[in-house]
Design a protein around this nucleic acid. Structure first.
Length: 482
RNA sequence: GCCGCCAUCGUCUAACGGUUAGGACGCCAGGUUCUCAUCCUGGUAAUCGGGGUUCGAUUCCCCGUGGCGGUACCA
């Protein structure tokens, strides 16, 4: 069997769709698994949707995710150009070849004519379909119109009464009757090819062995199969993938949530988490292992285990995985990752300080973007919180104030050089135990005094990072609130 | 309308025709020297409906129902 070559062929519409990323991932995994090639091709054949600089979003997204392509617009390769708008002559040549063979024909109908035709058919409850009026044109009429520069498209001629069977690696055998298929436009009047022509020509020329794309393409696959037949080319293997869905089970789209990879990068999702999560949306290894690195995915990936039903994109599980991967990071790595989420003025505190602070919050983060809000109290000159927050259970303000006074006295005794969480904890716990007091009566107000929050890391950890002076200052401040 | 596809806990998903229908997320409860988080333990929750086939259907077949996709000079 010849070498496996898969491709990711997105339209540069301005951003990389999260669903596209998963399609790219599966295509990449399929190629890597079999020691094949994975290439990137830009399908920019719709001039109306042209977006300046849109290809960058695709390059960046793939790079972020760790999906590497060996050929593509920005890396070159033997089968270029890898941008369809740069291959117009190629498509034209092949479209004309089909016209010569009598398998495609010129059509001079304008959009108004077509629209009327469709409306009439819909009114009669018929399937909207081109009525082939231009197929009846004589050679002379065609020549005349062409020399008059009448705008034209080239349409594919559909055979009648033929059943085309797709043998799909995911869906099995699916059949369509050509009578239900339209005479698809192959070459548009602006000289650009439609998707159908371009994808077939390019996949053939670029020696793609497996066409991987989402389910929405299944119904147009018979057209593509026929095109391969018309050209006399061997068709690739098909693998249609299940769709990614919104919570309401419709095709995942903007307006119903974030769909751009960029959005997730900005929120501080890790590529490891995203890849792991995306891989499991429509596939699983058949074991109970659910934490997967890219390398492990390559090893265990199998098209046969992809299933057909669409999968809802569930942010809760992504969050879980993201938190998991954040916890796996070394402190230095995490520091680097968090950098862009930290306030500039915090840098004055120094790298070591920030590092200690981040260490305390690591296990609490779900997204990197959580870091800013989570640690701001470490940098505040004065904490803002309701005094009632200092009150533990049924104690009175008087008692809390007295307890804080005791805490303060005990902490005072600890020398600067012993100001680390273990000694702090030992000192406080010893004191509390000796007097047969309740830890919560002391530690809760102490913690709130240091953090101003109802939820935070332990008071001893926070105190260590804050330092003796600042810690005592915050406790005094709390006492004054009561 | 027409064509096609799909259907297991709320979500992602396991289950050669024979399992107490399993796991993960979420949620709930308990434990882990104050809170939160982490971690550990336990719990909650599903085979769309109706017919077949079979000794036995989540699994195979048919019919419903529901959902989704396609039906463009968009991809």
């Amino acid at each position: 069997m010849s070498k496996i070559r898969t491709r990711f062929a997105p339209s540069p519409t301005g951003f990389l769709h999260i669903g596209s990323l998963r399609t790219a991932l599966y295509s990449y995994l399929l190629a890597q698994k079999n020691g094949g090639d994975f290439i990137l091709r830009l399908e920019d054949t719709d001039m109306k949707r042209f977006v300046e600089g849109a290809s960058e979003a695709i390059y960046n997204g793939l790079k972020w995710a760790g999906i590497k392509y060996s050929e593509g617009p920005d890396v070159g390769g033997d089968f270029g150009p890898y941008v369809q708008s740069q291959r117009l002559e190629i498509y034209k040549k092949y479209a004309l070849e089909l016209v010569d063979k009598g398998l495609a024909y010129y059509c001079f109908c304008d959009s108004k004519t077509l629209e009327e035709m469709r409306q009439e058919q819909t009114a009669k409850k018929q399937a909207p379909k081109y009525d082939r009026r231009c197929l009846k044109l004589s050679k002379e009429e065609i020549a005349q119109k062409l020399s008059d520069n009448t705008p034209f498209v080239i349409r594919m001629k559909m055979p009648t009464d033929r059943v085309v069977e797709i043998d799909d690696l995911v869906w099995g055998k699916v059949s369509y009757n050509t009578n239900d298929l339209d005479d698809q436009v192959l070459l548009k009047s602006d000289g650009y090819p439609t998707y159908h022509l371009a994808v077939v020509v390019d996949d053939h020329l670029m020696k793609i062995s497996h066409v991987t794309r989402t389910e929405e393409w299944l119904p147009s696959t018979p057209k593509h199969i026929l095109l391969y037949e018309y050209f006399g080319w061997e068709a690739p293997k098909w693998a249609h993938l299940p769709l990614l869905l919104n919570t309401d089970r419709t095709k995942m789209s903007k307006r119903k949530g974030d769909v751009a990879v960029e959005d997730y990068i900005k929120k501080g999702y890790l590529p490891e988490a995203m890849i792991n999560y995306l891989a499991f949306l429509g596939w699983n290894p058949g074991t109970e292992k659910e934490i997967y690195s890219m390398e492990e995915l390559i090893k265990d990936f199998d098209l046969k285990k992809i299933h057909k039903a669409g999968a809802v994109f569930d942010i809760e599980k992504l969050d879980y995985l993201n938190g998991y991967y954040i916890r796996q990071k070394s402190l230095d790595e995490l520091m680097k990752l968090c950098k862009s989420f930290l306030a500039k003025e915090w840098e004055a505190k120094g790298e070591e300080y920030i590092k200690k602070v981040i260490a305390l919050e690591q296990e609490r983060l779900k997204k990197l973007s959580d870091i800013s809000e989570a640690i701001e109290f470490f940098f505040a000159d004065e904490l803002k919180y309701e005094p009632e927050l200092l009150i533990w259970k049924k104690l009175t303000a008087e008692q809390i104030k007295k307890n804080l006074e005791e805490v303060s006295e005990q902490l005072e005794k600890i020398p600067e050089k012993n100001w680390v969480n273990d000694s702090l904890e030992e000192a406080m716990i010893t004191y509390i135990k000796a007097k047969e007091l309740k830890t919560g009566d002391y530690l809760w107000p102490m913690r709130v005094a240091l953090t101003g929050r109802k939820a935070s890391p332990s008071p001893f950890d926070v105190a260590e990072v804050l330092g003796k002076e600042e810690s005592l200052k915050r406790i005094k401040f709390a006492m004054n609130l009561l």
